[in-house]
Amino acid sequence: MNPALLIARKEAGELLLSLRGLGWLMTMAAALSVFSVLLVSDSELSLLDNAQVVYDMAAIATAMGTLLALLVGIDSVAGERERGSLLPLLLTRASREAVLLGKIAGIAIAWTVMFAVSVAYLWAVGSTGQNLAGSVVAVALIGTPAVLGFGLLGLAIGAVVGSARAGQLSGLMVLLVSTSPLLLGPSLRQSTVGRIFDRVNPFSGAVDAYDAVIIDSQSIAAQAFDLYLVMAWLGLTMIAAVVAFRRMSR
């Protein structure tokens, strides 16, 4: 079997079948369940309240996906190096690129499962509201490159830093800054610095596209800029991960 496929299967299995991996899914499901039940308990909902919850769910699923991808990316290199399991892998005949491809494929499989879980929740609350299909397509098309980009960034950080803990701290800092659009109010995001930051931040690109598609009922085709932004992010992080893997010492 292709070494990349073997590595992907191992990584995805560890993520989805281990207690740790299931813990991730449980956390995500619990967060989305709380949102769903809040919606049911409100008897005077407008279409916008419904759309807002669908938007929140899409953003939470993406945020949790980026967190998972980043931490797993760091751990699967720096963590494995500390546990002594990276060296045997690098000593095999598999190329560095194959190892990298296998690891990112494992993250992609885990994200696919998270996405599938979030689609069930989006259907539950959004099927009687508006723009359910748009929300699913937006998360798939724009959320996925953003999530995988953070996974690649995690792999690059893991390859560069000396310890898993240092890598996780650096990665979490980057993620915290990137997800700040979820915390900042609209007025701060409208400032000059806020607008520039939004223009280069892949997470902003994803949530802005969700907002436009789910709440403002715009078409996916109108979100070309955000799609280019997350694809550029994916490309840049791919280059960073490839370079970091090639230079990585055993």
């Binding site: 049911v40 279409l47 309240d49 419904n50 259907w123 539950a124 609350v125």
Partner: peptide
């Protein structure tokens, strides 16, 4: 806009 029998 939301149906409890779907959400719960």
């Amino acid at each position: 806009v939301v149906q409890a029998q779907r959400v719960l």
